[in-house]
């Protein structure tokens, strides 16, 4: 049933594979570079200035951003699935990403006018912090609507997600009418999801909140495990449920907000990655949370490689690739659940 009995070893293997993939991805793109050129560019042996420029200024920030965004979204998906006690939660599906995106778009479009003071006050972090607040608000709404006495109704949760996606979508649509041409171009990227324009600046914005969430969420692994048997049961076992809930809700909103503010809405990472990890390592959050971060990073890095090579020299949006993978996967999950429930 499980592919391994030794989770720690499996995590190390996942880490190793992620690193290999990452280095390989640096050699893939419009200009083909061999691994040797990539490694020497990374290590600063300046025998090929051109390669050094491509690797260090274009591909490396893009790779690192992909790793961050993938890890952030996947670990958030895994934690949300624990919080909602069902394996179909995903930040994009239930609307957390679109809530974060709406807040980020509002900051971009209205930053020069209505929200001027807000943007000046938060400066560099105005975008990710607003996205965090948007994500937090949506998570809280879904929890209030779909959860009663610690039990989440799956259909209510997914339907709330549809409603929130619709609301956030229309509000974002209105904002695009107010946007200038230049702002508009960045706006299309929100709805599709992309890490093509990754810069060291984006990395600086996203890294602190995402790394913090990825490191801090496993701290709630044991209470999350117990929580899967219900709110009352985990309280009886001695876990502080309230603390766990608020910790998980804020940390997921933090990671999703930061990811969305630099890459737009990339769906399904938070759905696919935790499932893959559960198949490998079982459902224990002590392994699922770090494992999801690694698998999520891999997923986004691979999707991004496909996005930039499949129609080269043109580029697809990474959101399209993730949906092409995640959509059928989601359908497969639903069919499986249907079979289980004997529907």
């Amino acid at each position: 049933m499980r592919l391994t009995q030794s989770p720690v070893k499996a995590l190390l293997i996942l880490l190793f594979v992620t690193m290999l993939l990452a280095i390989y991805s640096l050699s893939v793109g419009a200009i083909a570079l061999n691994t040797q050129a990539v490694v020497s560019a990374l290590l600063g042996w300046q025998n090929d200035l051109h390669a050094t420029l491509v690797v260090n200024e274009i591909r490396l920030p893009r790779l690192l951003l992909g790793v961050l965004v993938g890890a952030g979204l996947a670990v958030s998906g895994a934690a949300m699935q624990g919080l909602f006690r069902n394996p179909l939660a995903d930040p994009a599906l239930v609307g957390v990403s679109s809530g974060a995106a709406l807040a980020a778009v509002a900051v971009i479009v209205l930053g020069g006018s209505v929200l001027n003071d807000w943007v000046i006050f938060w400066g560099f972090f105005a975008l990710p912090f607003s996205a965090f607040l948007g994500g937090l608000l949506v998570t809280w709404i879904i929890y209030r609507v779909a959860t009663k006495e610690g039990r989440t109704d799956v259909s209510l949760m997914l339907l709330t997600g549809i409603a929130i996606n619709a609301i956030a979508g229309s509000a974002t649509g209105v904002l695009t009418y107010l946007a200038s041409d230049e702002e508009l171009r960045t706006l299309t990227f929100w709805s599709m999801g992309s890490i093509a324009s990754a810069s060291w600046h984006d990395l600086a914005i996203a890294s602190v909140p995402i790394v913090f969430a990825v490191v801090a969420l496993p701290y709630f692994a044991r209470p999350l495990n117990a929580f899967l048997m219900g709110e009352a049961v985990s309280t009886h076992m001695g876990f502080d449920v309230k603390k766990m809930k608020w910790g998980v809700i804020s940390l997921t909103a933090l990671a999703v907000g930061a990811a969305v503010s630099v890459s737009g809405i990339i769906g399904f990472v938070g759905l696919v990655a935790p499932h893959v990890v559960r198949l490998l390592l079982g459902p224990d959050h002590r392994w699922v949370l770090p494992g999801s971060a690694l698998v999520g990073a891999m997923l986004v890095v691979v999707s991004d490689m496909i996005a930039r090579t499949i129609l080269a020299p043109a580029e697809l949006s990474i959101g399209i690739i993730m949906s092409a993978i995640g959509g059928p996967f989601f359908l497969w999950l639903l069919i499986q659940r249907r079979a289980q429930s004997g529907f």
């Binding site: 899967l228 219900g230 049961v233 079982g282």
Partner: peptide, 13 residues
């Protein structure tokens, strides 16, 4: 310790 009437668990522990 407490054993409630029913426990719903959806994950393959």
């Amino acid at each position: 310790s407490v054993m409630p009437q029913s426990i719903q668990l959806d994950f393959p522990f």
